[in-house]
């Protein structure tokens, strides 16, 4: 069994408790306009091209079977590219291979109360693989977290609840229209799933709300989210301010990015009081 993974980051302090290794699975069923990992959205392997790093040496063209006219994501150009301007995004991993990476920082999970976090994209779309790797980590005593937008059938949650210690659950907005506008999908299933999860899951749930300047940073919207989540059982809520650190990746994918702004610190402080 294999999964398409686009990055494995060690030493993360922000994807759950302690020191964590975050495994990013490729493919997402939402299409958030502000996504800071745009390379995660399509399930297939993609080629990233960083114009600013390119020195026009032409080696990529020499080794490409199609002389760069079309791409089959064979990755030959990236291997040859001396400057790293070409990067293949998305690689198949077996459960064993992912575990091998995860296990490297095991000692630091123990010393910091950390563990592994599966993120994406929407990692739950590759649910069978996810269940296997979570099971493997759990058996080996590693704390497991799943970072999800929640727009998947409820049965998917049922499949992994017993091998997951923590869900990091994103709520982007409460009003359905706004959700459709920003992500392309309704939030009905998302809210339903969160409700069920809070009732049926015995582990921890951390609810995370991205605050996107110019999209959902309205008091009313955020207050509605707060009212909704307050009825639920969860460990805590985290408000995450929008940042622009993913913008360069849109360029590398040859895409336009939608411009949002970073909420000011005072605004963030105020919003946090709602929750």
């Amino acid at each position: 069994m294999r999964a398409k993974i686009f990055d494995i980051q060690r030493n993360s302090f922000v994807d759950g408790p302690g020191i964590r290794t975050t495994v990013f699975l490729k493919g997402c069923n939402l299409n958030c306009k502000w996504c800071h990992n745009p390379e995660s959205q399509l399930p297939k392997t993609q080629l990233l091209f960083y114009q600013s790093k390119c020195v026009s040496c032409g080696r990529c063209k020499e080794v490409c079977p199609h002389a760069l006219k079309t791409c089959e994501w064979c990755g030959r150009c990236a291997v040859q590219c001396p400057t790293g301007a070409r990067e293949v995004c998305g690689k198949e991993y077996t459960v064993e291979e992912v575990f091998c990476e995860v296990a490297k920082d095991r000692i630091f999970y123990q010393t910091s109360g950390g563990g592994v976090t599966f993120s994406g994209g929407e990692c739950m779309l590759q649910i069978e693989f996810l269940r296997e790797i979570l099971k493997k980590c759990k058996e080996q005593g590693i704390h497991t977290a799943v970072d999800t937008a929640g727009d998947v059938p409820w049965e998917y949650f049922e499949k992994i609840m017993s091998v997951t210690d923590l869900f990091l659950y994103d709520i982007k907005c409460f009003s359905d229209n706004l959700h459709r506008e920003g992500t392309g999908n309704s939030n009905e299933l998302i809210l339903q799933n969160l409700q069920k999860l809070s009732e049926q899951f015995s582990g921890d749930v951390i609810i995370r709300v991205p605050v996107i300047g110019g999209f959902n940073d309205r008091e009313e919207e955020l207050k509605q989210i707060a009212t909704f989540v307050k009825k639920l059982r969860y460990k805590k809520t985290e408000l995450l301010p929008y940042h622009e650190m993913g913008n360069y990746k849109y360029e590398a994918l040859g895409r336009q990015y939608t411009s949002y702004y970073v909420p000011r610190q005072e605004e963030m402080e105020k919003y946090r009081t709602f929750f």
Binding site: F13, V14, P17, I19, T111, G114
Partner: peptide, 22 residues
Amino acid sequence: SNIDSDNAISAIVGLIKGFVRL
């Protein structure tokens, strides 16, 4: 900015302990 969260304290403690154990 990377260590301005509450979790960062646990993480720094974890790094120190890991450093000792290794």
